[in-house]
């Protein structure tokens, strides 16, 4: 796929409904590549996977309707207002005009953005943008949402608020698949997998992983594994 280099090699895992699944790994471990395969913008050379019950080869269209995605790169349109962004993304997911209107009103209210809903997204601070992007990824009520390093470059307070949003979504039954390299965030996950050189080296709840490696924090678990 990337020449002879195998970015992701034989990974096996299952994620339960409503679970917050942390997908960890050092930079270049193959997290993003794995996510891209799961959401259908890259194709694995072999293997199979189902997402929300749909096969990633055969039912790509069904998968697209049922997943949300937020990438490393911040991905709303800076030159559109908050409301226009919501309307646009609602539109491409085929939501009805009425539904979009309801959704954007509640969303703006929940995020406390009433005053800036007519401002261009480009004028808002990064933390706010990330929260809007997350809400937009959830707009069409996906069964599973993929978050690729959603909190990169965000201050600790906003990170905390962001995780509250993640909890809330999980509580409502959405499965969360999140990559991060903040190890404190790993502690928040129901289960985590740690990827080293394209392979999953560990997969369990944070608590069990810590006792397995006999260490105090996920940070140490990670260091143990990454050093090999």
């Amino acid at each position: 796929m990337f020449g002879d280099f195998i970015a992701v090699n034989a990974i096996n895992f299952e994620v339960k409904k409503g679970e917050i699944f942390g997908f960890l790994g050092a930079n270049g471990a193959g997290k993003t590549t794995a996510i891209k395969m799961l959401i259908g913008i890259s194709h694995p050379t072999s293997g199979n996977a189902t997402i929300a019950g749909f096969d990633i080869y055969k039912n790509t269209e069904d998968i697209k309707k049922n997943i949300g995605y937020m990438s490393q790169k911040f991905a709303l349109y800076d030159d559109l207002t908050v409301r226009e962004n919501i309307t646009f993304f609602g539109g491409i997911y085929g939501l009805s005009r009425k539904r979009i209107k309801e959704k954007s009103t509640t969303l703006i209210k929940e995020l406390g953005l009433e005053d800036v809903s007519k401002n261009l997204v480009g004028s808002l601070p990064l933390g706010w943008k990330q929260k809007i992007a997350f809400s937009v990824a959830l707009l069409h009520d996906p069964k599973i949402v993929f978050l690729d390093e959603p909190t990169g470059g965000v201050d600790p307070i906003t990170r905390r608020q962001f995780w509250e949003m993640i909890y809330k979504a999980a509580h409502q039954g959405t499965t969360i698949f999140v990559t991060t390299h903040y190890m404190d965030e790993a502690e928040y996950c129901d289960r985590v997998s740690i990827m080293v050189n394209g392979k999953i080296e560990a997969l369990n709840t944070p608590k069990k992983l810590k006792s397995q490696f006999n260490v105090e924090s996920m940070n140490d678990v990670f260091l143990n594994l990454a050093r090999g």
Partner: peptide, 11 residues
Amino acid sequence: LGTMEILLVSP
């Protein structure tokens, strides 16, 4: 900007 990815993931 990375929005293309988001569009490709959408239906």
